[in-house]
Design a protein around this nucleic acid. Structure first.
Length: 391
DNA sequence: AAATCGGGGAT
DNA sequence: ATCCCAGATTT
């Protein structure tokens, strides 16, 4: 129990874990609720590590509703680990197009190849081996181990953080080291034993169900705003609710100030094809295709996300803005608020400057091919905005 | 410890 | 308009 006025960091270090009877009650109550009310999600219809791993990678910082169609398309194309390892990164990126955090897609593909080469094509069952795979951190390792293998492994995500911060009244800012440490301590204490090891196994109470139950509660009832405490199976044991602080917890993390960004994008069409340029390797959205884009420097001459000029190709290669504004778009990338002016441009592919360009940095994409390319989300949005009359 | 990396859906 | 999402990696 915390005392007002004390250092919350020290308090969290010593915050007492629930006693064994309370732990049994928490597991029983939440797992019963989960099995009664859980959503029917595509990855819950299968239990193989490959499907769990793909879904958890897609779900990193991404909502369930957003992921579902991406997951279905991905699994239809890559049915197992071997298929993914044999696929090309470009195609993986294309399937990821619009989902964001493209590093995840690259890591997924690289990890599949590592498993085929170094683990005999068998998904590792050990936490240390999982953590050695690109794109697999503490959360994803815990998710795969508990959900696919039934191992007694904890996990902490945004939902777990919110639920535990409320149920146990953990008074420290989100993402602070003090809270992170406390959350993992509670998560490890609460996750049920492996079915094979548990002396007093409870029906329906297993590591995978428990971990998903906590997240399901956070996603459906114990929401950031307007938690529906009257429906919560843990309401009688929730310390934040007892204190009337359910909506005040968890304490939000400090926010970064928003930065305004202005972009100009060009729609250059020849025949039934659209000019695209390829983003350089290594940076943001590396290797993804986009409409020629430049950032308009702010009053201090600064740019934040793009270069001040169009690519050398777009400038010198005969792609010339002709002033007609087709659309104004709004977009958001992390803490950047982006306003885009989409303009018509002319393009002459026959010029010497164009021929001198490396063709891996630009292409004229046929309309029918756009859906299968690794486009950035913003370019997808721009093409959607002008599809129809403008195309 | 802090910054970076996408995009969108809910409020 | 704001928040934050089934996080991982780099600096």
């Amino acid at each position: 129990m915390t005392r007002s006025g004390a250092d919350p960091r020290i308090e969290l270090d010593r915050a007492p874990l629930p006693d064994p009877a309370e732990i049994r009650w928490l597991r029983r109550s939440l797992c019963d609720w989960y099995h009664a009310f859980k959503r029917d999600l595509p990855w819950r219809r299968r239990s193989d590590a490959f499907a769990i791993w793909i879904s958890e990678s897609m779900l990193q910082q991404t909502r369930v509703e957003t992921v579902i169609p991406y997951f279905e398309r991905f699994m239809a194309r890559f049915k197992d680990l071997a298929a993914l390892a044999e696929g090309e990164e470009e195609e993986v990126l294309a399937l990821w197009s619009g989902l964001g955090y493209y590093r995840r897609a690259r890591a997924l593909h690289a990890a599949a190849r590592e498993i085929m080469e170094f683990h005999g094509g068998v998904f590792p069952h050990e936490r240390s081996a999982l953590l050695g795979l690109p794109g697999v951190g503490p959360y994803t390792a815990g998710a795969v181990l508990s959900m696919a293998f039934g191992a007694s492994e904890a996990l902490v995500d945004g939902n777990v953080a919110r639920v535990f911060a409320r149920v146990f009244a953990l008074e420290a800012p989100l993402r602070s080291p003090a809270l992170e440490q406390a959350l993992w301590r509670f998560a490890e204490a609460l996750v049920p034993a492996d079915a094979g090891e548990s002396a007093d196994a409870q029906k329906g109470v297993d590591p995978g169900s428990w971990n998903q139950a906590v997240m399901e509660l956070g996603a459906t009832l114990c929401t950031p705003k307007g938690p529906r405490c009257q429906l919560c199976p843990l309401q009688e044991r929730c310390e934040a609710r007892a204190r009337g602080r359910a909506e005040e917890l968890p304490i939000p993390a400090p926010r970064r100030p928003l930065v305004a960004v202005e972009l100009e994008m060009l729609l250059a069409r020849t025949g039934e094809r659209t000019l695209l340029t390829r983003r350089p390797p290594g940076g943001r959205m590396a290797g993804m295709w986009e409409l020629p884009t430049r950032e308009i420097p702010n009053a201090r001459g600064e740019t934040h996300l793009w270069e001040a000029d169009f690519s050398t190709f777009a400038l010198a290669g005969g792609c010339i803005p002709i002033g007609e504004e087709l659309s104004t778009l709004r977009h958001a990338i992390t803490h950047h608020r982006i306003t885009v002016s989409l303009r018509r441009a002319t393009f002459d592919p026959s010029g010497a400057q164009v021929r001198a360009q490396n063709e891996s940095t630009w292409r004229l994409a046929a309309d029918d091919d756009l859906a299968s390319l690794a486009l950035t989300g913003l370019t997808k949005k721009a093409l959607r905005a002008v599809s129809g009359p403008a195309l």
